[in-house]
Design a protein around this nucleic acid. Structure first.
Length: 312
RNA sequence: GGCGCCAUAGCCAAGUGGUAAGGCAGAGGACUGCAACUCCUUCACCCCCAGUUCAAAUCUGGGUGGCGCCU
């Protein structure tokens, strides 16, 4: 029998945290975060990481795993969270997975096999060299000659993805597109229930604006200053996170604080939009409306859906 | 009341006779080891009316609205 899994997804600031805690309470289980930024230690305010008092005693996993300058990939996420899921199942608990990082979510429930396509820093830096010296068009042509399918799918301007495809080919000797066939195929490891939280766009945007303001008044600048003092530079993936890169720019006197806040809000809105796009493409998601004024209704809807699907 | 200037997308703004740059904001989309990343697509018949012209956002006249100065 397949193991059960409850997944709660949706854009930033819809209220995933609240709903996931309540759901976990209901199921007497634990929460696994699927968020690419909350894995970093010391990045709390800007990532809207769940606070101790919000957890209500529910254990949370996949948070605070690495330092901001450490590498962490989807593959790491898949294996580490997979182990936790297994452990919970052993204890007869149905894990609640909550997060907004679509790729992480998909790594668990779809057939994304990362095991045969490793990464190689040497190849990577060589490709970066090539990008510098020859340019993105040349890289894309290289890809075209070895893997026309992938080249057709990846835009010339998307140098990052072009390089990844080349990297995979160089390491494995097999075209990137070869491992790309069953992207949206359902994994047969789990019986999962996928819940998407949605909210009126304008309302969500207002909440985002408000949340950014709150972050700043709750000490985001100090948080970034501390990270900066610890030597974490702007080029790190972690510091590319929204809130961090903009405050860094402010601290480096490139923009005013006002401007920084404006851009943070905009970037967060764009993130939310991209998250919607990602999840909308997945027709297995049951969308549940969130009304912040009446969160109880949302919780009720979630509960009903869970019993409907035989989880409760 | 008179004189002058201006009127282009939600905002900023280029274009001074040949069929509407660009930026910002928005919308849609892609995404298999950096994913809060990276990337793609998309958004106006130029205030209104009349005229000149093969052709007008661009020229002319009138109207309307705004800004400035003067009385």
């Amino acid at each position: 029998m397949k193991k059960k899994l409850v997944m709660i997804v949706g854009p930033t600031a819809v209220g995933k945290t609240r709903v996931s805690v309540e759901t976990a309470k209901l199921l007497d289980t634990e929460v696994i975060s699927a968020d690419a930024m909350q894995i970093y230690i010391g990045m709390n305010i800007g990532t809207a990481k769940i606070r101790e008092d919000e957890k209500q005693g529910i254990p949370h996993h996949m948070i605070d795993l690495v330092y901001p300058d450490e590498k962490f990939t989807v593959s790491d996420f898949k294996t580490q969270s997979g182990a936790i899921i297994e452990q919970l199942h052993l204890n007869d608990k149905i894990p609640v997975i909550a997060g907004g990082t679509g790729l992480y979510i998909n790594s668990l429930i779809y057939k994304l096999n990362f095991s045969n396509t490793i990464s190689d820093d040497r190849v990577r830096s060589e490709l970066n060299q090539l990008l510098e010296t020859k340019g993105k068009v040349t890289l894309h042509r290289m890809l075209e000659s070895i893997d026309p399918i992938a080249a057709g799918k990846i835009h010339v301007n998307n140098a990052k993805r072009v390089m990844r495809a080349l990297e995979v080919y160089h390491i494995t000797g097999r075209p990137f597109s070869a491992s790309n066939t069953d992207f949206r195929d359902e994994s047969d490891d789990y019986h999962f229930v996928l819940i998407g939280l949605e909210m009126d766009r304008q309302l969500l945007y207002n909440r985002i604006d408000q949340r950014v303001d709150d972050m700043v008044s709750n000490g985001l600048i100090d948080e970034v200053m501390v990270l900066r003092a610890q030597g974490y530079g702007r080029n790190l993936t972690s510091m590319q996170g929204i809130g961090y890169k903009e405050i860094m720019q402010y601290l480096d006197h490139e923009i005013t604080l006002e401007e920084s806040v404006r851009i943070m809000k905009r970037n967060t809105r764009r993130l939310a939009k991209r998250q919607f796009t990602w999840f909308k493409a997945d027709n297995r998601i049951k969308w549940i409306h969130v009304d912040p004024i009446n969160i109880d209704q949302t919780l009720k809807d979630v509960q009903n859906y869970l019993s409907e699907r035989g989880i409760l």
